[in-house]
Nucleic acid binder design. Structure first.
Lengths: 346, 346
DNA sequence: ACCGCATGGGAAAACGTTATCTCACTTCCG
DNA sequence: CGGAAGTGAGATAACGTTTTCCCATGCGGT
């Protein structure tokens, strides 16, 4: 009972011996093979396995079967609610599909992303989901595409979560359309003078959102003047810094600042507050994504809802789908007006 | 160039043939073995590998070597900032150690946790990190412990992230001490009448924090009356519901509510606001964990800082450490006073 | 000149599975 | 009663690696 000495895990061999059957029969009994096996034998094997605490070695199964049950997930930053929500969706769906997910963090660096894709290929995952953000000026983009194409040629499935269309299966996020709808809605609320935190140059998500927002404004007869925008990192601290810069440059009569995503918006609101300005009252703020916490900030944040967890689920389902063009409808976005953008009544 | 037909990944065999060397030499060239290999041969192999786009099959390596490079991580809920911060730490450290992390979600269900541990054992991970929360009344606890012990006997390493001491390596969270320090500090600020959201019955983390908080209050001559506490789920919505219940029962002269963790505190503050009460001014609120977003809520939240990302890193390092009793010092906690608990001056 | 002895390549056995292929045995039909 | 046709267990060849072992070669020492 108190065997504290280190041993090795029980193998199928052990189980077969213990049950007094052949290796083949043991294997057939423990996983569902097409072949039938005598119920009496089957019982013996099952009992033996339980007695020995046998767990099949997934690596060995992978080698023998030539396929794994792994899905590889690449995100920019796990601690960011945007990515962790997507990850939660992927992991949940994977669990339902009896798959295992392995995760890695690109830290928003394209070179690192490429490196990680290479490394992950070693696992021979069934699926690779790339939620990490695309850049327009990515020098590693070609190499990445080549790597992924090679991966697909060996039977893998690539799914991107992004707005830009890629040569791979894609869960399409309507960043542009969502931002345009947001702009329209803000105009409806009476806003006229807009500013924005535009994120880092070259980041596709950022560019799409800004483009969509501008489009909406222009369509409504307004615009987004360059001197009311500031570049900044795509993070909470970036949002804080960007808003800080806007404030330092002089907000003028800016009525509403669009922050590109919710974490940036939250940083921006803090920057406003720290500068003695009341977000929502003196300067309205809008975000994008609808991460869970925006209901709990003050004022509650107006944003464009992206069903992130569902996005993760869809990504995996899409990867597993038979048909190649099952990408289906883009993910629905929805403008959600909250207290950070009150109706202007003057 | 446009070979779109599906093929299989290049194997070491292919590389060896392409380079005109034996399998053994190819293997020795591509990973660092103890044996030296002629530089000319080595180059040929490396070139051949590059030409064929060879990536070693990790499963096969695992089978041949008898060990994997996998870290299994179990969390309760990936989308919860507490767990995603820990996960970020684990993934970051794993990356530095050239390890791969696979992740699963217990959804706070002990039965599920046991099931998952069983399933993960199939991967033969080098390390299993359990960040999912312990329960005092867990009916599956014995089975879990048996499973983990068996796992350790076969060479695996278990690390718990928790406050309760376990028979396994543990990153110790000083929930009790931190909560006690928080109580002391709140007394210093002039608070006298306390309430609390106590979380679900049986959850160790919750119990420890409440116990510590009560201790601190009692030590300071105050107390935590049962009629000012409410049970609730350990989530944002739980915090909201719990505070709602407290409000409905009548807050009386309660001056400060301790919410057990930050997401609950944020829910609680929203509940207060929705009831027309100003958190921080009319009722003070304190949390625990110091998740990133609490700097951005209004009022900013007083809490006990837990360096969550570092906790994740430490967990992995602890798992990998040679010595058995390297658990080291408990993770330092720090009370951080912010605007949600202003000094009482009446 | 001969004998170790290090050096380093290659054949082949292992790792823990699955899947193919035998083959003994039953059953059923004419 | 003989033979065809199932049935299902077991031996064994894979799967893609690593690693052990064997062996040819070259070199230094006596």
């Amino acid at each position: 009972m108190s065997q504290t000495s280190r041993s090795t895990p029980a193998t199928l061999h052990d189980v077969a011996r213990e049950a007094g059957v052949s290796l083949a029969t043991a294997s057939r009994s423990l996983n569902g093979s097409t072949r039938k096996v005598n119920e009496a034998y089957r019982q013996k094997v099952l009992e033996a396995a339980a007695r020995l605490g046998y767990t099949p070695n997934l690596s060995a199964q992978a080698v023998a079967r030539g396929t794994t049950t792994t899905v590889a997930l690449l995100v920019a930053d796990i601690a960011d609610p945007y990515f962790s929500s997507i990850a939660a969706g992927v992991v949940g769906q994977a669990d339902r599909e009896q798959l295992i997910v392995t995760m890695a963090e690109t830290e928003r660096d394209p070179a690192r992303e490429l490196e990680l894709v290479r490394a992950m290929r070693g696992q021979r995952p069934r699926v690779m989901i790339l939620a990490s953000s695309r850049r327009a000026d990515d020098p590693a983009a070609e190499a990445l595409q080549a790597e992924l194409t090679a991966y697909e040629q060996t039977g893998g499935r690539v799914v991107f979560i992004t707005a830009t269309d890629s040569p791979f299966r894609t869960v399409t996020l309507e960043n542009r359309e969502g931002a345009r709808a947001l702009a329209t809605r803000m105009l409806d609320l009476g806003y006229l003078r807009f500013g924005a935190l535009t994120g880092p140059a070259g980041l596709r998500t950022a560019e799409d959102r800004i483009a969509g927002f501008t489009e909406g404004l222009v369509a409504g007869g307004s615009d987004l003047p360059a001197d009311r925008t500031a570049r900044c990192a795509f993070t909470r601290d970036g949002g804080y810094a960007g808003m800080r810069e806007l404030i330092d440059r002089g907000l003028g009569d800016t009525q509403l600042v669009f922050a590109l995503n919710d974490v940036m918006a939250m940083g921006a609101m803090s920057a406003l507050r720290d500068a003695g300005l009341a977000p929502g009252r003196e300067v309205a703020v809008a975000g994008f994504d609808d991460i869970p916490t925006v209901r709990d900030v003050t004022p509650t944040l107006t944003t464009v809802r992206l069903p992130l967890e569902e996005v993760g689920e869809r990504a995996l389902r899409l990867a597993l789908a038979e048909s190649d063009d099952e990408s289906g409808a883009p993910v629905p976005t929805e403008v959600i007006v909250r207290d950070s953008t009150p109706r202007l009544t003057d």
